[in-house]
Design a protein around this nucleic acid. Structure first.
Lengths: 221, 221
DNA sequence: AATACTGTTATACATTCGTGCAACAATTGG
DNA sequence: CCAATTGTTGCACGAATGTATAACAGTATT
């Protein structure tokens, strides 16, 4: 019997590989199906490595949760920076980006939901959720404030906070339902629905956000 | 050795008991922790009964998912019927009820999220999600239409459908974040935030929904 | 009160789980 | 080019899992 040949990686690389494999396994088979052996097989290593790098299985899964949320908020931040022009454009592109590909993703929403199901039930998950939620909320506030000010609407911190909470709920809910992809309507409707609803939530004039719809407003209504 | 004394129940009663125990176990310990033995212990029976009534473990969990969604939409329907007065009042009470106790519940959101994590990944879950989502959407459309008409706003089916999609996203997102209860803001803010945002989404005059806030508007703003 | 029916218990079994641990080998520093 | 380090493998172990199945006992019928 000969041993499997292997390659020594840096701790960061090996950890990232194991975290990605963990997310893949959880996405495909759920938390129950993400066993140490399956994750290790998917990552091309053996199960003992998990103990070596993460100590316990719980710790690996918690780290995978944080890894996922870092990816999601990182992409959201990137989308917000793509809107180079007016504050309205930045906000519009950010909102739209959250209800279009690649953010609309069955894999991502399955992962997100699986972890959310553990928040408040298993130790450590609440902190990760709170941190990532706060990041998202603050990002949204910084996008909303200049737009409200540009239209001479009240933009004090309390008002902007409430508006961020509402808009965050709207984005989360639409991202969720769009990603789950029941066949009840076509996902193409979502960007327009989201932008129009966002205009209403923020009390902006009609089409102030819709006109910045990234794909171009080739549809008339 | 003496056997455990037991009681024969009707099939409906026994199934309901097992389904409730399943939801309790999933809520407390996650899908991975909801083993046949633990569920049976919690229901006061032995594990063999699960096979007798549900055949397989997968089938039990799927039935528990449907059981949960039936409960949730049942409560939502009840809340919508509590608003006896104007269409605005019915809609306002429905929206508010979804971001207040008892609908705001850490247990319920954990269960919901756990199941959502399996939609599209395991067989049978997508259908349950689609059915319950459609029910909720249609309920919302029936509440929105008369309100839009009362304010002489366009209320054609297509418009109402888009508004329902947006409002459903808003409600879902706020219910979710409120139920998860990160300590970033007090959940008391949610009903006002939700109603004000709903007014914007539906393009209703300010305070047209807020004035029907169930707890009474003792706060001035 | 005896009988039949079947809901329920109890046990068995193969499988998979997390993880502890010793041996090995890829890499690095001298 | 050799030796030390440690990332990695491979295996063992007890516990827990889903489910098959036989024996039992509550319940209803007569």
């Amino acid at each position: 019997m000969s041993r499997k040949p292997f390659q020594r990686l840096t701790e960061a690389d090996r950890r990232r590989g194991l975290l990605d494999a963990t997310l893949d396994c959880i996405g495909a088979h759920g938390l129950s199906g993400a066993s140490a052996r399956r994750i290790a097989l998917h990552a091309g290593v053996t199960a003992g490595l998990i103990r070596h790098h993460f100590g316990t299985m719980d710790e690996l899964v918690r780290c995978a949760y944080r890894h996922l949320m870092d990816q999601l908020t990182g992409e959201a931040l990137l989308a917000s920076q793509a809107g180079r022009g007016s504050p309205e454009q930045a906000l519009a592109q950010f909102v739209a980006a959250n209800v279009m590909g690649p953010n609309i993703s069955a894999r991502k929403v399955a992962l997100w939901a699986t972890f959310i199901g553990r928040v408040g039930r298993a130790p450590g998950y609440s902190e990760i959720h709170r941190d990532s939620y706060r990041d998202f909320l603050e990002l949204l506030e910084r996008l909303i404030h200049p737009v409200r000010a540009a239209y001479a609407l009240p933009a004090d911190p309390d008002t902007c906070r409430d508006l961020s909470i509402a808009l965050n709920g709207l984005i989360d809910g639409l991202w969720l339902e769009g990603s789950l992809g029941h066949g009840l309507y076509h996902a193409d409707r979502l960007p327009r629905v989201a932008l129009s609803a966002a205009e209403g939530v923020l009390r902006l004039p009609d089409h102030s956000l819709l006109q910045h719809l990234p794909d171009g407003p080739m549809a008339q209504n």
